[in-house]
Amino acid sequence: MTLKLSILVLGSPYNSQAAYSALRYTQAAISLGHEVYRVFFYQDGVHTSTRLSAPPQDEFNIYEAWQSLQKEHSLDFVTCIAAAARRGVLNDTESKRHNLPAANLAEGFDLSGLGQLVEANSVSDRLVTFGA
């Protein structure tokens, strides 16, 4: 049976294991042939979608891992726009709108609202939550 899955990430890298566990689960789901409909980054989970992080080179780079997973499978990654703005995660449009000097949303991520989470939940067989 093939499932349509959506993933909810609520914890930031380094503060909780949520982003790592969600990554491993998503990779496993894809490898078993399931459809990953959307990955939604919410609350502190939005920190996973920055492109301005530089972890030590001898450590696992969780940001890069998420970005390459998105690219490889053309996944739909949505970062909550309100949760992101208050934590300093912005794309070009939001950066200009708030009159701020830089943007840092990684390629492959879209800023959008909670409606995208509600929609993902209603069309998916399961919403798998990784809480902080």
């Binding site: 491993r24 689960y25 990779q27 490898s31 078993l32 919403l127 798998v128």
Partner: peptide, 20 residues
């Protein structure tokens, strides 16, 4: 259980509750 087995457990049950 491995992560793959976590996915299979998701598959063989009807509902999912993540407590955190």
């Amino acid at each position: 259980a491995s992560y793959e087995e976590y996915v299979r457990l998701t598959e063989r049950t009807d509902k999912l509750i993540n407590w955190y």
